[in-house]
């Protein structure tokens, strides 16, 4: 019986010495390894807080979206995030929150999203909306880049959760930003030359002082001569007394699904209300051709009403 005690003690002592020695060496080399890891990330972090000294914060995130969390002493926290968007290779970007909760920086590291759509998530238009927000706001999606921006917002939410927990900021994490702000811009005058959209009135129904025109107009596909596209058909109601547009609606959609059909929202068509032949109406960014075909249809209706 003595034998077993001797054996067990001996092995236990050897393992104890082993454990102790390992801890000593680990305490010696761990800081070196950690500082080396930060060195590698440094030049990315400099993009946001130039000149700050960074320490790595323990990454307790289990969503797998946060690759690394770095604290810029006295300035804020930088999160290195990764998610998959439209393309199969995941994109990586940095989001930073200042200590007061405002967004300190938003920087793309690598992404192979389709440019013109997904890649717009890192162009100034979306970047400015993000830079204006704080860690307790809900981040909006980006119309025309829904797949990518959903991935971006999902990753930022993970970073927000960590940051707010760290700073003890209460926030409503499942608040969803209101319908994605329809990015509209560069207005087109109703009297401009839209002849190649070939807007033709196909039907006219007078109803008291209002007439409803059914107008067909070319869209993105037909303009570029691509097959299996058809015209867009709009119903424009014109008020005959002051020749203004009472309302406009799209009854048939013939352009690229997922892109052109974004204009088919009341929010956009309300912009036409009260427009006369001399006023101008915005186009939806990312769906310029379809917007122009709507404007060409409105112009044809106004011309037809004006012709009376």
């Amino acid at each position: 019986m003595k034998k077993i005690i001797y054996l067990t003690c001996f092995l236990a002592i050897v393992c104890a010495i082993a454990g102790g020695a390992l801890t000593v060496v680990n305490d010696m080399t761990a800081p070196v390894i950690e500082s080396m890891a930060i060195e590698a990330e440094k030049e990315n972090l400099e993009l946001i807080y130039p000149g700050a000294d960074f320490t790595e914060v323990e990454n307790t995130d289990d969503t797998g979206l946060i690759l690394g969390i770095y604290e810029a002493a006295g300035q804020g926290y930088v999160y290195k995030l990764q998610n998959t968007g439209y393309s199969s290779t995941p994109f990586q970007f940095l989001i930073a929150f200042n200590l007061d909760g405002t967004v300190g920086g938003y920087q793309m590291l690598q992404s192979s999203e389709t440019n013109g759509f997904g890649a717009r998530a890192w162009e100034d238009e979306y970047t400015n909306t993000i830079l204006g927000l704080t860690s307790s706001d809900a981040f909006p999606l980006l119309s025309g880049a829904t797949v990518t921006s959903t991935g971006v917002v999902e990753a930022i939410d993970a970073a927000k959760a960590h940051f707010n927990a760290l700073q003890g900021i209460e926030y409503d994490e499942n608040a969803v930003a209101e319908a994605p702000a329809l990015a509209t811009g560069n207005p087109v005058a109703l009297n401009s030359d839209l002849a190649d959209y070939n807007a033709t009135v196909t039907d006219e129904v007078a109803d008291g002082d209002k007439t409803t025109y059914t107008v067909t107009a070319y869209g993105f596909g037909l303009l570029n001569g691509q097959s299996d596209y058809s015209e867009n058909v709009f119903e424009v109601v014109v008020n005959n007394t002051d020749l203004t547009i009472d309302s406009i609606a799209m009854t048939q959609f013939g352009d690229t699904a997922g892109i052109g059909d974004k204009i088919d929202t009341p929010e956009y068509f309300d912009l036409f209300k009260g427009a006369t032949i001399d006023s101008s109406v915005d186009t939806v960014t990312g769906a310029t051709f379809t917007s122009n075909s709507a404007i060409a249809a409105a112009q044809a209706a106004l011309n037809a009403a004006g012709g009376q």
Partner: peptide, 10 residues
């Protein structure tokens, strides 16, 4: 984590 090797062997 650095004790992983010894633990697994034992």
């Amino acid at each position: 984590e650095y004790m992983q090797l010894i633990t697994f062997i034992l």
